[in-house]
């Protein structure tokens, strides 16, 4: 008896899911991809221009790369603070989330959001509420790759 009513319920849910699929608007995938490509691409081109500029001023490749990252992070933080980055993100989607600027945006947005709960329980405790997983798994993978490097080189 129980399994019959469960199956009936499941059939009802399946039927409803079909209806939702028919009715809900399709995400504008192509438009989103074009936006993401253009914005993400422009952010990267801008980064490259910074690297070229720094290298033409005598920085080496590694330092210029780090310098470009720092400048991009600063600018993303600034535009988040000015309330502009989320407007860009609305259109650009992955294009503004995936580059390093998106990471800066996630941290600064959290810090701004929780400032009203104070610097310790607000900003301090919750600044990585969005970026935290990236850090945890980024560090974990880094350690793992490092171990592989030790094991398999030499």
């Amino acid at each position: 008896m129980d399994s019959l009513s469960e199956r009936l319920k499941q059939a009802e849910i399946d039927e409803y899911n079909q209806l939702i699929k028919k009715i809900e608007p399709k995400p504008p995938v192509i438009k989103n991809c074009i936006w993401a490509f253009i914005v993400g691409g422009l952010i990267c081109v801008f980064g490259q221009l910074i690297i070229n500029f720094l290298m033409s001023n005598g920085w080496n490749q590694t330092d210029a790369g780090s310098g470009a990252s720092v400048i991009l992070i600063f600018l993303a933080a600034l535009f988040t603070g000015l309330g502009l980055y989320d407007e860009l993100g609305k259109y650009a989607g992955a294009g503004s989330i995936v580059p390093i600027t998106g990471f800066a945006n996630a941290i600064v947005a959290s810090a701004m959001e929780f400032k009203r709960e104070g610097y310790i329980f607000g900003v301090g405790a919750r600044i990585f509420s969005v970026a935290g997983p990236t850090l945890v798994f980024g560090f974990t993978i880094a350690v793992f790759i490092g171990l592989l490097n030790i094991l398999f080189t030499k």
Partner: peptide, 17 residues
């Protein structure tokens, strides 16, 4: 928004639904 979703200044794309 801050209780149920993401920080308000985070640049996320909303779905049409």
């Amino acid at each position: 928004e801050r209780q149920f979703r993401t920080p308000t200044e985070q640049g996320v794309q909303k779905s049409a639904t």
